[in-house]
């Protein structure tokens, strides 16, 4: 099997992108979970204690998988969290919350 040597990350909207060779800060010995963490740090997105997933070719990657064990075709990742939106707490939003004094 030919394994991947470079990973191209993006968020769901494909507006935030980052790519890296697996030779420097991220190596073949890191796993998917660590790679997600690295991507978020690079693009300045807080983890916020949310469950994060990475998808490649429409399939969710196992977080424990070693990057060196990923096939070459799994080089393009979409990284996204499970996150909740909604009107709860809207009344304490920026328009009505603490004001700049």
């Amino acid at each position: 099997m030919i394994t991947t040597s470079r990973i191209r990350f993006s968020d769901l909207s494909q507006q935030k992108r980052f790519s890296t060779d697996l030779t420097d800060e991220l190596t073949v010995d890191h796993n998917v979970d660590q790679a997600i963490e690295h991507f978020l740090e690079q693009i300045g997105v807080p983890e916020n204690d949310l469950p994060w997933s990475a998808y490649s070719r429409g399939v969710r990657l196992d977080k424990r998988t070693r990057l060196g064990d990923l096939p070459e075709q799994d080089a393009d990742w979409t990284v996204l969290p499970t996150v909740t939106a909604g009107g709860a707490g809207a009344s304490t939003g920026p328009s009505t919350g603490p004001s700049t004094g």
Partner: peptide
């Protein structure tokens, strides 16, 4: 939080 994490652009 959705804007910060899911759609950060």
């Amino acid at each position: 939080q959705v804007l910060e994490c899911l759609f950060p652009s």
